[in-house]
């Protein structure tokens, strides 16, 4: 079995909704090539937009993606998608299970409303990363997300569960109304972080936000050590290397039950 490889042939700047990718069921290559896909105001045969080869429809590769390809991995179930190049809006929107590896940058609202699975973005993610999906009042429901570089403003809204590891910075207005889950930020944290958050765990090196939090007297590191090992193992590198984090719990205004580790 060879991975199903899509090579994009499109030259102009129209956006292409890639939702069909998650729905591919057949393993016959000719059926896939004959799929009807809406592009702009017209309908095309898939083979006029992409060169397709391979036969493993559970292992998909997009070899030359660009920022006009939207909704890749939308509602994905049980597939692996590897992407080379940038992607447009809504990567992994509402994804349920499976794996996405993006070797490039993600456009707005990536991973919004994700319910499960894992996403590795080996680049930046634009504004609205892990934001609320249309009209919903919960953002990330569950899943594992690693972003190697930075994410934009208004990211991670009303996160319910899951793990997010951000190698770079996080923009302003992020982690709004955090409900639960863990967020690791290795770079700088933007303004107005964790506004109205309820619970959740933050790992950060940015000491500037500590001012608002209350230092915990006893440093219980069981969870920290467990988490550190788990994350480092999943990513197969030493992301969290501190052995003596400073633990904070709750804010001085007394509202939030956030646990904060400065690493």
């Amino acid at each position: 079995m060879k991975p199903l490889v899509f090579k994009c042939k499109i030259k102009d700047k129209r956006r292409l909704d890639m939702s069909w990718l998650s729905k591919i069921k057949t393993s016959s290559l000719s059926n896939i090539k004959n799929l009807r896909v809406n592009y702009g105001s017209k309908e095309y045969k898939l083979s006029t937009l992409f060169d397709v080869s391979g036969n493993n429809f559970k292992d998909i590769i997009i070899s030359n993606s660009n920022k006009h390809l939207d909704n890749i991995g939308n509602n994905l179930e049980d597939k692996k998608i590897t992407i080379f190049g940038n992607v447009g809006f809504g990567l992994a929107k509402g994804m349920c299970s499976g794996e996405i590896i993006l070797n490039g940058n993600a456009g707005k609202n990536a991973c919004s409303g994700m319910k499960g699975g894992s996403v590795h973005i080996l680049g930046n993610a634009d504004d609205g990363f892990c934001s609320l999906p249309t009209s919903m009042n919960e953002g990330l429901v569950d899943g594992f997300i690693y972003v190697q570089k930075s994410v934009g403003d208004d990211s991670v809204v009303r996160m319910r569960r899951g793990n997010i590891i951000i190698g770079g910075n996080i923009g302003s207005g992020s982690c709004l109304e955090l409900i639960s889950g863990s967020v690791v930020v290795l770079g700088k944290i933007g303004n107005n972080f964790c506004h109205n958050a309820r619970r959740g765990t933050i790992f950060t090196r940015d000491k500037s936000i500590c001012r608002e939090y209350i230092k915990a007297n006893q440093t219980d590191l069981t969870f920290f050590n467990f988490y550190k090992i788990k994350i480092n193992k999943i990513l197969n590198k030493s992301i969290i290397n501190s052995s003596k984090p400073v633990r904070y719990f709750g804010t001085k205004s007394g509202k939030e039950l956030i646990e904060l580790f400065v690493i």
Binding site: K13, N71, G90, N109
Partner: peptide, 15 residues
């Protein structure tokens, strides 16, 4: 689609 069908954004980026 709140992003892909955002007309102002589409127009500004020449899509």
């Amino acid at each position: 689609d709140r992003d892909a069908n955002n007309a102002i954004q589409l127009i500004n980026s020449g899509n």
